[in-house]
Design a binder for these strands. Structure first.
Lengths: 282, 282
DNA sequence: ATCTCTATGAAACTAATGTTTCATAATTGC
DNA sequence: GCAATTATGAAACATTAGTTTCATAGAGAT
């Protein structure tokens, strides 16, 4: 991040020599990362000598390149003031600050969607759209998210059911799985021991399996699924964070709603109206 | 930005020597900017020698510090441009892109924690720590999150119960509420019509109410609660987004675990061990 | 065409960074 | 208490980075 350097360059651009303008253009083109390189490398990338680079920064008013870097660091610290203020005043959780928690959650979300291929999301959406029934499964801690997913999808379409609630009836439920159905599996480490045999059995029903899991489980679960949407779940403690997974569920519902169009939204409106009517009767 | 370095540190933390842990802690505390400093300076900041720093990075699997910096640059390049590429090529959901979805989620998270007062989080944590029993309530769509919250807290302490599951038994459950208990309420708009009378009744039990809700409901629910932790829930459709609320639940659990200390973590370990044993018997 | 001035790169010099080696202190096991 | 092992920092060494100086090329003015 080099905002103030960029501003100085912009203010002085016409007064720069040709070599200096080469440097200036490079910095304007790569504002975010150029200062992570040493000046020697910046000069090389711009196609000028080290001497020209040194004179360039001096021409802009800096005493030397170290001053440029120090200014950029100060600017970075100042850009996110809430993090610093939170970090300083915030409650310490697990030895970390609220700011650190937020940072990690933001990174989990960013990396999750950074790496999400649109064709993977589309494939998952298509499977859901075409399925006569959707079975949602989440074991242990993942059950809450499974319920959330089921509710999100049930608002938009019929035939969305939860598996594994009363585990004593799981076998009966598995017997109900049919071809063309979709199993929406939500699972984070540590994975339930029964998961693999359950998935192996489920596949004999010739249904499709869409799995939401963490990055580390991607390869393993890819073998047992038709589509895997991986999430980043890094945390400071208490097992994996499911914030990114919650957001992926939401995106999947949004994506389905967009594909299904008016009928999905109409269903959601109907359900809302039913609720209002039921509550009026209470 | 040093996400992968951070993950490597987290995976290996217990195997690091004391000097290496000093470096590790510094990097965890200052993930965003620490790699803008040379390794010599990082060593100085951590209070170790340059030799220790060099061995530390090698211990983590890097051939040298230059490789650490190169990886961080690559990561930054991979994180920044994707928003543009996703926005241009990504699946359109509800008229918005994956990039827009991510942006909105990031903003929800950022604003939620930016506005979170540490004293409010501490007050909620204290109430939970001191309560003989915690009742968790989420109606309708919020039920999934309520289950998630209950599971997170039940791993850390006894006496965490879910309200409102079989609504026909709700009256019986409400009769069980006692003084000094805490009701952890999770509710987003549209709020269930029964919520207000339910809360009014609950207060006659002289228990404390900790409410997680959206910003818009803050004033209204503040009158009925002891502590309110508001979340930003902006979305493009399908009602409010609960990604930030999921993360607040997680932070609350982390905060409680930090306060309760060893006993909470021990309980979590015990539960994990029980699960392993039960699964081995399956 | 020539002279003056400016821009520039090569080279020299200085400074800083990073890695490796070695000696010592601390820790662990018997 | 002692020996063996490991961790660590100081120092040596190697490499890179950054600044300054000097020589040259190019541009502009006459």
């Amino acid at each position: 991040m080099a905002s103030r350097l960029v501003l100085r360059i912009q203010e002085n651009y016409d007064r720069l020599t040709a070599g200096e303008q080469k440097l200036a253009q490079l910095i304007l083109d790569r504002q975010d990362d150029i200062l992570t390189f040493p000046a020697t490398e910046i000069a090389r990338l711009a196609g000028v000598s080290k001497a020209t680079a040194a004179r360039f920064f001096q021409h802009l008013g800096y005493s030397d390149f170290n001053e440029v870097k120090a200014q950029a660091r100060e600017e970075r610290d100042r850009t996110a003031p809430y993090e610093m203020s939170l970090a300083q005043s915030g409650q310490v959780a697990m030895g970390r600050t609220i700011g650190a928690h937020l940072d990690l959650e933001l990174k989990n979300l960013t990396r999750t969607f950074e790496e999400m291929r649109s064709d993977t999301l589309a494939a998952a959406t298509d499977l859901i759209a075409d399925a006569p029934r959707i079975w949602v499964l989440g074991l242990g801690l993942d059950e809450g998210l499974a319920r959330y997913a089921r509710l999100q999808l049930a608002r938009l379409r019929h035939g969305v059911l939860l598996l594994g609630i009363g585990q004593s009836a799981l076998a009966e439920e598995l017997a109900m799985l049919g071809p063309k159905d979709v199993l929406l599996l939500i699972t984070l480490p540590p994975h339930a021991a029964m998961l693999k045999p359950l998935l192996s059995y489920a596949r004999t029903s010739r249904l499709s399996i869409v799995t939401l899991t963490d990055r580390g489980s991607l390869l393993e679960l890819q073998r047992l699924s038709d589509v895997v949407l991986p999430c980043h779940v890094a945390s400071f403690g208490l097992g994996p964070s499911n914030t990114a997974l919650a957001s992926v569920i939401r995106l999947l519902a949004l994506s389905y709603a967009a594909k299904a169009g008016a009928s999905a939204l109409q269903r959601s409106d109907i359900i809302a109206a039913i609720k209002e009517e039921i509550m009026d009767m209470s």
